[in-house]
Structures are given as C-alpha cells and as structure tokens.
C-alpha cells in the first residue's frame, strides 16, 4: 500500500530548484578513492557487502574515472558469472565488465543497462581492423528499456607503452568508432602485449554519463 503524503502543490515548482548531478557526484563510484580531492569513506563504515571484499586482499581492484564528473575511485571484483565481472563500489553501485570491456552499469544514474559486445570483442583482442555491430539497452527515465544498434569501425592504432599502478606495460592501442542515427562515440582500448588482455580502456557509457576510464590497479 502506497503511503499518501499530502504536500503543497508548490512542491512541483521546487522540482526545478535542485539538480541531480550533485548527488551523483557524492554517490557515484567515488567513495573508495585515494584521490586527494575526494573524501574516502572511513574503512569501518563500509556496508557489509563491500567490507567483505575489502577484507579479502586477494580480490582484484580496478581504478575507474568518470570523466564528465571529474570523479575517480576504486572498485573491487565481487563476482564473475558467464564471463561477466561485477565490480562493486563502496556505495553499492557497480560496473559490469566483459574481457575488459564495459557491459553494463548499475546505480550510477544507470544509463547503460546492458550491451551486447560479442562482435567487437574478437577484433579488439586479436588486433584486427574491421566493421562490427554493437547493441546497447538503456533504462530510461520512464522505466522503459530503449535499445540501440551502433555500427562500429575497429582499428589497430599501433603500439604504446603506458604506466599503470601495476607498472609500465607495452600495449597495442585499439579504437572503436561507433555511430547510430543520433549518437556517436569512440572507445579506446589498450591491450597488453604481454598477456593479450585489456589493461586500460576509455569507454562511452551513454549520453548522460559520458566516458568512463578503467585501469588495472593493485591493492
């Protein structure tokens, strides 16, 4: 049963006054950060689900930056099911990652509900150039799923050495240039020449969130 709360009709007028972006910055994925500009959550205050991952020092860590919000943080790997990893933040939002590629988001103003990236994965990991399709489904503000197909050109941009927390790593830079009728974006992936895995990526998570950068990190 829905509780009915009487409120002045003026409440409607106030809707315009506050912006959601501020709250997202507070929340987002910035909690477990060591970035001096951000306030880390004291260790004892982690919710149990995240605290369990913090306690287990064998759990892998990922460094994440949301460019549009100037926000960065560290996520811990909670689970891997059918090749899709769930990386959890201290505030219980999550990114889904498949072979280093962004497959979905939850609780970050979750635009990207799920992506079918089976086609580009092959080209990017093998260093090949070619056209592929990728499919995104977004959860809209009206609680509907909207699906889009993007046509993408994957290209090998040659080698580059990058510096991560894990050390200096020789990589191959791959770009994925995608377009739909009304949207376009370019994802960039750095594929380790040592392991063949994506160790750094800059990927588009929808028009609202923009680009997210992910990097391998160490505990």
């Amino acid at each position: 049963m829905i509780t009915r709360v009487l409120a002045s009709f003026l409440a409607l007028a106030l809707l315009g006054a506050c912006s959601s972006a501020d709250r997202l910055v507070d929340r987002g994925i910035a909690i477990a950060t060591n970035d001096p500009g951000q306030k880390p959550l004291p260790k004892g205050q982690f919710p149990p689900r995240f605290a369990a991952l913090v306690a287990d020092t064998s759990v892998p860590l990922m460094v994440v930056t949301v460019e549009s919000r100037g926000q960065s943080g560290r996520l811990l790997l909670e689970n891997t099911v059918n090749g899709i990893e769930t990386w959890l933040s201290a505030d219980m939002s999550a990114l889904m990652i498949q072979n280093g590629m962004l497959q979905g988001t939850r609780g970050v103003g979750s635009e990207l509900f799920a992506a079918d990236i089976s086609e580009p994965i092959g080209l990017i990991l093998s260093g090949s150039t070619g056209y592929t399709d990728r499919f995104h489904s977004n959860l809209t503000g009206d609680d509907k799923i909207s699906t889009r197909t993007y046509r993408c050109l994957v290209e090998n941009k040659g080698p580059a050495v990058i510096n991560l927390e894990t050390g200096s790593i020789p990589t191959r830079v791959m770009t994925e240039d995608c377009k739909s009728l009304d949207q376009s974006f370019t994802n960039t992936y750095w594929v380790s020449s040592n392991t063949g895995a994506i160790v750094q990526a800059r990927q588009w998570a929808g028009s609202e969130l923009g680009y997210i950068k992910t990097q391998d990190g160490i505990r």
Binding site: N79, R106, S110
Partner: peptide, 20 residues
C-alpha cells in the same frame, strides 16, 4: 517551469546494484 514527468530525475535510480 516545464516538467517532463516521463523522465525521472535520476534515470535508472541510485539504489544498490543487485547481486549477480
């Protein structure tokens, strides 16, 4: 002020991610 009711202020919401 014009409100679009079809758009939540935070699309998708801020609640915790479900467990996989």
């Amino acid at each position: 002020y014009v409100i679009n009711p079809a758009k939540r202020r935070v699309p998708g919401g801020l609640e915790n991610a479900p467990r996989s």
